[in-house]
Design a protein around this nucleic acid. Structure first.
Lengths: 221, 221
DNA sequence: TCCAATGATAAACAGCTGTTTCAAACATGC
DNA sequence: GCATGTTTGAAACAGCTGTTTATCATTGGA
């Protein structure tokens, strides 16, 4: 065995580079040279670049989904048959997201990867994540449904994705935004502080009053 | 002159392909062959692939900023010295965004490109957009400042970017989200309808109550 | 001790990338 | 008509891409 496992050295290097520059823009040669590992090692241990990308995600998402499931278990046990309030659900999710990368001090990388998963072409990634980790999301949305019975299903779906966009966009572009905020407002913000700022905004957004559907006379695009 | 200008044929093809697959994942050969144009034409007319990417953005952003500036002029003329309410500002912005691509029936492409500009590596793009079109955004945020005097500057900055994330994330991933929504809720939504749904959410988010700063005892990441 | 399996290494592979070159075609002004 | 500047065309360029091969080293078990 080398001083640290070749596989984990590849994963450690790859996740940072992917987060910094995207998948297509990061070559295997860049990864392997920075990881002080032979080029062929990636294909030997992971099979292909695609699989390496998925492995990087699994290493974050597997512990996350496990923790999140457990946290939801506790939450449901605590509330029994009563409806879990929206704030508690959001709080639990936030805590689960924060806990995982705390073990490896890189929430920033985690969020940036999530952002890339949504925005980059990489259709295989979205499919992989959907198939592998879709069930947690389904469970969560069902609980949100019970917490917001006044919302029509479609409206809640869209608002949840509005908020997903808020979180992913903000946290994945964190460095750039933090620089601007610090320069313009002397406001050096930490991730935990950002999440504190996010909470009331997300709650207010989910509970915003609904407006009447657009009149049909308006032309469509 | 060919049946349509070589330059515009390149731009038309490039913007669609970029929106579909990202910048790094779209080769000049794919663009030129699909546009039925010689490979060298891109480098001849635009100089480089980088410049082509910027040209694609200019073609959207130049008309947009011009319209948006004009719309803000009218708004300020109408309200005189009075403070323009937040809803009116957001409404004006939404209208300006909607108007531009209506001329070329591709708001979807426009939004997807905006999303890519934020998420893709392409540091040159962010710099280009910032330098070229930053002034409109500055003007807009100043008006938002007057409309929300109760918010501290830093808080307003973050909330504006929260909402920017919401809009860009939603509209740039529109196709995928729409498919899910249609399958699960039979809800076939148009862009204009989505924007109608976005409005109350954004307003509520901007006007959400503030919570006290986190106690200093909490450890930071 | 020998064998087999596993892992690491360097080299080569075919294919694609953005860009350049230079000759041909074209249009335009005189 | 000729000469001018502009736009196209096919081909080549050097460089990088992911992947494969074949060789070598190292290990653990019989």
């Amino acid at each position: 065995m080398a001083q640290t496992d070749t596989v984990t050295r590849i994963l450690d290097t790859a996740e940072v580079l992917f987060a910094e520059r995207g998948f297509a823009e990061t070559s295997l040669r860049t990864i392997t040279s920075k990881a002080k590992v032979n080029l062929a090692a990636v294909n030997y241990h992971f099979g292909s670049k695609k699989s390496l990308i998925q492995a990087v995600f699994s290493r974050y998402l597997d512990p996350f989904t496990e923790r999140f499931h457990r946290a939801l278990d506790e939450l449901q046990a605590h509330y029994g048959d009563a409806v879990i309030p929206l704030e508690a659900l959001l709080e639990t999710m936030a805590r689960s997201v924060l806990e995982v990368p705390a073990e490896r001090n890189s929430l920033k990388v985690f969020m940036r990867l999530l952002g890339l998963a949504y925005s980059q072409a990489q259709g295989h990634l979205r499919r992989y994540i959907q198939e592998e980790y879709g069930s947690v999301f389904t469970r969560f949305t069902e609980l949100v449904r019970q917490a917001t019975p006044e919302l029509p299903d479609a409206e809640r779906f869209w608002r949840l994705h509005f908020m997903l966009g808020t979180v992913i966009f903000t946290l994945s572009g964190l460095d750039a935004l933090r620089d601007i905020a610090e320069k313009d407002y002397g406001d050096h913000v930490t991730v935990r502080e950002l999440i504190r700022r996010l909470r009331p905004v997300v709650v207010a957004a989910m509970q915003a009053p609904m407006t009447a559907p657009a009149p049909q006379s308006v032309q469509e695009a």
